[in-house]
Design a protein around this nucleic acid. Structure first.
Length: 820
RNA sequence: GCCGGGAUGGUGGAAUCGGUAGACACACGGGACUUAAAAUCCCGAGGAUGGCAACAUCCGUGCGGGUUCGACUCCCGCUCCCGGCACCA
């Protein structure tokens, strides 16, 4: 009975028991009437080694899943592998193994590491995205998108990472560099595959308002990323030519103030002129160079050149010059802007530099504006705008847009910053894009019966281009339409394609008939609680929302079955830091989870990870803190020995009552943490307080022993979501009839929280001057009388008149006085 | 530049609705046990001033104002830090 806490023996024992009892599986039995809960953590890339970020992520998810089970929910808590991706290829080049071999070996290794942490996953639903049974459905979906015109091939200026030797989507470029390897991204014109996420821009934006369970900043980041702006398209006919320039503006109210047009260097009209003008060509070439160095854009000087072309103002017919300017982007709007120097700071600076006219057409609502102080960029009242004079900016925007529309000179338009998702990659280790290039029929989607298009798994990338190009068995095929010789598409999908729908696949992971099963979706989706790093705020989390809507609109499930959004609640956990910096091999500040588990056990690792910081904040690793967590478990462990020879005698009922109060107050606090915000650091602190109270409780007698036992059992039960092995072992020794992790969550006994007496803080003038203990329902006069009876308080009332007395029941009494 | 979030002891952090600031833990100091150490247990601790001490008083949640009987919490104005976006027309 007095043996010591031995984490390794206990952990191995319970992991085996849980596995053989199958306690972690989610039930698909229709007869199971328990309420359902879907808890999901972002699945890992199988690098082969678990790091502390993973540990934190999965411990958070596991605590939630286990708590919900104890609350009587049928919990879906799955795990799998985001198994395609570049590191596998790089490792394959380095170690001479195929990416497939390398990946599957890593999966085996990481699976073992996760199991050692004692995470309660439903392993029967494990998926790996590199498995053809998985990516087959993504290929299927893509062919449907092709049918609907939502997927297309186009030549475009794209982001190219030289180190990864592939293109990147806009979301995957951070600060002008590749999100994965930090290599500066260059621009290239290439023919690539896109998915029309812009067709869903409005819904993706509007539904952000429904994500009340998401952190505000993630919602805000997505809103920024989608970047909606409402305005108008305006046509400016070109003088002496048949064509016209179309610009996009959010300020049609300033139309009368346009004094020049500015075009991007990449604009077709500029390109055309540059062929005849060497000076212009040199300028354009310079712009093309500098545009790749996005970090410098901020400090870049605004420069331009006249094109020697004039355009006609659509209202006044005035001739206005057309310029090329280095600050106009080809990729946004129409690549052309109307410049209104009087009402735009950037246009103002440009006009001043090149001596272009500045014409004020909007005045502040209350007064004058002196253009010497710069541009007036606010809304105001129109002036010098003919028929539109006197209108406020908002009305003028609508009227002027209507005016243009009526004359075919423009129209209202909404512009988004979001661009279509570039999904093709010039890499081998990814899901093949299911199309065939036929010399006769062109691009032909692979028909359903020929799916999946299997990726050959035995190829060895060398680093010089995709090995698929040299694999005739893959490359050469027959056209599904004309049956003639044809070639397969050699690009593979962006790996974000796989991670965009895995949460839905988990609901019916072995489904061979469809991508997902509508009934299973109705049972589980959407995810109730999603947990992962904030770094995916506009990558994975945006793509997944988009994919969910695509799947819905393809009829895989309805809004009622699967919801319109994949994740109801999102928790973005902070990073794990050491010495104030993110752990990394190059900095040499890593903590190896395996070594930690080896030394202290999984439960200690879990406990410290959850205790050291609130989940959404960064966690500073502290080895001494880990020792502290281990000490705590030892202390709780020893509490059980107290039951063996409890001293006889008469119990002190007041002390027993105080302990019961502490027990039930703790239940209240810990439950609150699980139900509101997952502040596990606070929950664990409360459990530590309870352990301290139990340890300090030294009252003799059978009643006291029973009270102590109740407290210890509650403590062990509430520890189960955090340190499940420990709790199960303690529970078994305490004689629990079921495993601690399967017990019902303790209920608060309100009677235990009732008190006959309360201690109130007494303030004079809002400053604490003492405490009084009074009957629970004592009224203001009674409390005041008690306060005056206390010498330490009374001395502050000497020579004073009491002006006012405020009683906050159960908390405090504040006496407001005035010198007599 | 714009949009978020934050700033509390030596450290990580707590404080439910405006009601005892610093829970819990780490680190530290003192003590008990021990031949000794480890382990364990007990005690102390925001700062300043006075006092042998118990204790007392004042100050204190980035800075300056305000509202309130009462402000870490609400309002106004700043400073700094972190994150995101950014010639976006």
């Amino acid at each position: 009975m007095s043996e010591r806490y031995d984490a390794h023996t206990i952990e191995a024992k319970w992991q085996a028991r849980w596995a053989s009892a199958g306690v972690d599986a989610a039930s698909d039995d229709p007869a199971d009437t328990r309420p359902r809960y879907y808890c999901l953590v972002m699945f890992p890339y199988p690098s082969g080694n678990l790091h502390m970020g993973h540990v934190r992520n999965y411990c958070l998810g596991d605590a939630v899943a286990r708590y919900k089970r104890m609350r009587g929910f049928n919990v879906l808590h799955p795990i799998g592998w985001d198994a395609f991706g570049l590191p596998a290829e790089n490792a394959a080049i380095k170690h001479g193994r195929s990416p497939a071999e390398w990946t599957w070996a890593n999966i085996a290794q990481m699976r073992a590491q996760l199991r050692r942490l004692g995470l309660s996953y439903d392993w029967s639903r494990e998926i790996a995205t590199c498995h053809p049974d998985y990516y087959r459905w993504e290929q299927w979906l893509f062919t449907r998108l092709l049918d609907k015109g939502l997927a297309y091939q186009a030549e475009a200026e794209v982001n190219w990472c030289e180190a990864c030797h592939t293109v990147l989507a806009n979301e995957q470029v951070e600060d002008g560099a590749c999100w994965r390897c930090d290599t500066p991204v260059t621009r290239k014109r290439l023919r690539q595959w896109f998915i029309r996420i812009t067709a869903y821009a409005e819904e993706l934006l509007a539904d952000l308002d429904r994500l009340s369970g998401w952190p505000a900043r993630v919602v805000e980041m997505q809103r920024n990323w989608i970047g909606k702006s409402v305005g108008a398209e305006v046509r400016f006919p070109l003088c002496g030519r048949k064509d016209a320039l179309t610009v996009f503006t959010t300020r049609p109210d300033t139309l009368m103030g346009v004094t020049y047009l500015a075009l991007a260097a990449g604009h077709p009209l500029v390109q055309e002129r540059a062929r005849e003008d060497a000076q212009l060509a040199a300028f354009v070439a310079e712009c093309a160079r500098s545009s790749t160095r996005e970090a410098d854009i901020e400090t870049m000087e605004k420069r331009g050149m006249p094109l020697g072309i004039e355009a006609e103002h659509p209202v006044t017919g005035e001739r206005i010059p057309v310029w090329v300017a280095n600050f106009v982007l080809m990729g946004y709007g129409t690549g052309a802007v109307m410049s209104v120097p009087a009402h735009d700071a950037r246009d103002f600076a440009f006009a001043q530099k090149y001596g272009l006219p500045i014409k004020q057409v909007v005045a502040p609502v209350d007064g004058e504006w002196d253009l010497a102080q710069g541009a007036f960029c606010e809304d105001g009242v129109l002036m010098a705008s003919g028929a539109f004079d006197g209108l406020d900016s908002a009305t003028a925007r609508a009227r002027i847009t209507e005016w243009l529309e009526a004359r075919g000179l423009g129209k209202a338009r909404v512009q988004y910053r979001l661009r279509d998702w570039l999904v093709s990659r010039q890499r081998y280790w990814g899901a093949p894009i299911p199309v065939v290039h036929c010399p006769e029929c062109g691009v032909v989607p692979v028909p359903d019966e020929d799916l999946p298009v299997r990726l050959p798994t035995d190829l060895r990338p060398t680093g010089a281009g995709s090995p698929l190009a040299d694999c005739d068995a893959f490359r050469q095929t027959r056209c599904p339409r004309c049956k003639g010789a044809a070639e397969r598409e050699l690009d593979t999908f962006d790996t974000f394609m796989e991670s965009s729908w895995y949460m839905n696949r988990y609901t019916s992971p072995r489904n061979t008939r469809a991508m997902v099963d509508a009934r299973a979706m109705a049972r589980w989706a959407p995810v109730d609680q999603y947990i992962g790093g904030v770094e995916h705020a506009v990558l994975h989390l945006l793509y997944a929302r988009f994919y969910h809507k695509l799947m819905r609109d393809l009829g895989l499930f309805t809004s009622e079955e699967g919801g319109d959004e994949p994740f109801v609640n999102l928790l973005t956990q902070g990073m794990v830091l050491k010495d104030g910096a993110k752990m990394s091999k190059s900095k040499g500040n890593t903590v190896d989870p395996n070594a930690l588990i080896e030394r202290m056990g999984a439960d200690t690792a879990r406990l410290f990870t959850l205790f050291a910081a609130p989940p959404e904040k960064d966690l500073e690793w502290n080895d001494a803190g880990v020792d502290g967590a281990h000490r705590f478990l030892n202390r709780v462990w020893r509490l059980q020995h107290r039951l063996a020879d409890w001293p006889e005698g008469a119990s002190d009922t007041a002390a027993c009552k105080a302990l019961r109060f502490a027990v039930h107050d703790t239940i209240r606090k810990v439950t609150h943490a699980f139900e509101h915000g997952f502040a596990f650091n606070v929950a664990i602190a409360a459990l530590m307080e309870l352990a301290n109270a139990l340890q300090a409780f030294s009252v003799a007698g059978v009643h006291a022993r029973a009270v102590f036992r109740e407290g210890l059992e509650a403590l062990v039960t509430m520890l189960a979501p955090f340190v499940p092995h420990f709790a199960c072992e303690m529970g078994e020794r305490l004689g629990f009839e079921t495993m601690a992790t399967l017990r019902a969550w303790p209920e608060v006994d309100e009677a235990a929280l009732a008190r006959d007496e309360v201690t109130l803080v007494v303030q004079v003038q809002g400053k604490k001057r003492g405490e009084v203990t009074v009957a629970k329902d004592a009224d203001r006069d009674a409390v005041l009388a008690a306060a005056r009876a206390d010498a330490a308080i009374a001395k502050w009332l000497d020579g004073m008149d009491i002006v006012k007395v405020i009683l906050v029941p159960g908390r405090l009494l504040n006496i407001v006085v005035r010198p007599r």
